[in-house]
C-alpha cells in the first residue's frame, strides 16, 4: 500500500465520521478537531474505523499522534511497515 493509497483511505474513513467533509478544503497538516469540529466521540469512532480499515489498533497512548491527515498517514505508513516486517 503506497502513501497515496493510505491517504485516500484515511480521508474516506474520516468522511464516514464527518459526512460533510470536503477533501479539497481539508488542510493535510491542519488539526482535525479544529477543522472539522469533531469531538472525542467522533475521534474515537475515527480510530475504530481506522482499525477496521487498516487492521491496526492505535494504542490510547498514541492517539495524540493522529492529529492531522498528514500525521495519520505517517503513523499508519510506519505501523503498516512494522507489521509487514514482523
Amino acid at each position: 500500500m503506497n502513501e497515496t493509497e493510505i491517504r485516500d483511505r484515511v480521508i474516506k474513513t474520516l468522511s464516514g465520521i464527518v459526512p460533510e467533509l470536503d477533501p479539497h478544503t481539508l488542510k493535510p497538516a491542519g488539526n482535525l478537531r479544529d477543522q472539522l469540529d469533531i469531538d472525542s466521540m467522533d475521534f474515537l469512532n475515527f480510530l475504530i474505523a481506522l482499525h477496521q480499515e487498516f487492521k491496526i489498533d492505535v494504542p490510547e497512548s498514541d492517539a495524540g499522534k493522529l492529529g492531522s491527515i498528514d500525521a495519520c498517514v505517517e503513523y499508519l505508513t510506519q505501523a503498516l511497515r512494522q507489521r509487514a516486517q514482523a
Binding site: L47, I48, D57, E60, S61
Partner: peptide, 17 residues
C-alpha cells in the same frame, strides 16, 4: 481511566465522559 484504556483495543475503550 488511562490505565484501564491502556490495555484495551480501540473498540473497548471508555471515554472519560
Amino acid at each position: 481511566l488511562t490505565e484501564r484504556n491502556a490495555g484495551r483495543a480501540v473498540t473497548e475503550r471508555l471515554l472519560y465522559a
